[in-house]
Amino acid sequence: MMRRLPMAVLLLALPGMAAAQGRTAFHAGPVFTDFAPIATIRSDVTVPAGTRFKVAFDVSDAAAPGDLSRAIETAARFINQHVDAGVLLSAISVAVVVHGAAPDDLLQSAAYADRHAGKANGSANAIAQMIGKGVVFHLCGQSAASRGITDNELLPGVKMSISAMSSHALLQRSGYTLNPF
């Protein structure tokens, strides 16, 4: 005998089922293959040939200890999406400005583990790969000072700035736009 589920139960289950189906559209990107998955999109908004992207991402929320920062991954996803759509990697410049609660995500292993009960920095590998592809990471010196972070604790390639505000101002002067996500 077949039992019928109440309509309320079915309505509650639909969003989860739709989300699970939607995730199957995502795949590894062409630049960062082990993080920052993307969906290939047939877009009605075309990127004109010769477009050069110069985009700054503002990161102030820390990742959960041991996890990859979703905000840092968003910057990598931006690169993957656009290269997947035909934009040359050489035409994409990305800067990530880190401040607030997020500076620990830029720490080397020992410094991170000391601050997070021995856990590994889940963002370190992604940051190294991103720096290897030309992404610039600026750490707000004011946030670093407030958290007791020194230059020698930073991942290789991370640049200390006077502040996040100064980094954003200088990046804007250099033609970077601020990504609102």
Results as ranks from 00 to 15, higher is better:
Leu88Met: 10
Met160Asp: 03
Leu171Val: 04
Cys140Asp: 10
Tyr176Gln: 01
Leu89Glu: 13
Ala120Gly: 02
Ser123Phe: 10
Ala101Pro: 09
Asp84Tyr: 04
Gly122Thr: 06
Ala124Met: 13
Leu171Gly: 06
Leu88Lys: 14
Val136Phe: 01
Gly122Arg: 08
Gln129Lys: 14
Ala113Tyr: 09
Ala117Asn: 14
Ile92Gly: 00
Gly86Gln: 10
Gly100Arg: 07
Gln142Arg: 12
Pro103Met: 08
Val135Leu: 09
Ala113Gln: 09
Ser174Tyr: 09
Ala169Val: 14
Gly157Thr: 10
Ser109Glu: 14
Arg147Pro: 00
Leu89Ser: 14
Gln129Cys: 02
Ser163His: 05
Ala124Arg: 14
Val135Asp: 02
Met165Ile: 15
Ala91Thr: 06
Ala126Lys: 04
His82Val: 00
Gln108Trp: 00
Phe137Lys: 01
His116Gln: 07
Gly86Leu: 05
Gly175Val: 08
Gly141Glu: 01
Asp151Gln: 12
Gly148Trp: 12
Ala120Met: 09
Gly141Asn: 03
Ala128His: 09
Tyr112Phe: 15
Ala113Glu: 11
Ser163Phe: 05
Ala113His: 12
Ala110Thr: 13
Ser90Glu: 15
Ala85Pro: 10
Lys133Asp: 04
Ala91Met: 06
Ser161Ala: 14
Leu155Met: 10
Ala145Asp: 15
Leu170Gln: 10
Leu139Tyr: 03
Ala95Ser: 13
Ser90Gln: 15
Asn152Tyr: 08
Met160Asn: 10
Gly141Cys: 04
Gly132Asp: 08
His116Thr: 05
Tyr112Lys: 12
Gln142Phe: 08
Val97Thr: 13
Tyr112Cys: 08
Ala110Pro: 01
Leu106Asp: 02
Phe137Cys: 01
Ala101Asn: 11
Glu153Gln: 15
Leu154Asn: 02
Gly157Ala: 03
Val94Leu: 01
Lys159Ala: 13
Leu154Tyr: 02
Ala124Asn: 06
Ala145Pro: 07
Val97Met: 08
Ala95Trp: 04
Asn152Pro: 05
Gly132Asn: 08
Ser93Gly: 05
Leu154Gly: 01
Gly134Pro: 11
Ala120Pro: 05
Pro156Val: 02
Leu89Met: 09
Ala102His: 04
Val96Pro: 00
Glu153Phe: 04
Gln142His: 13
Tyr112Asp: 05
Pro156Leu: 03
Gly118His: 06
Leu107Lys: 01
Leu154Met: 09
Cys140Gly: 07
Gly100Cys: 07
Asn152Cys: 00
Arg147Asn: 05
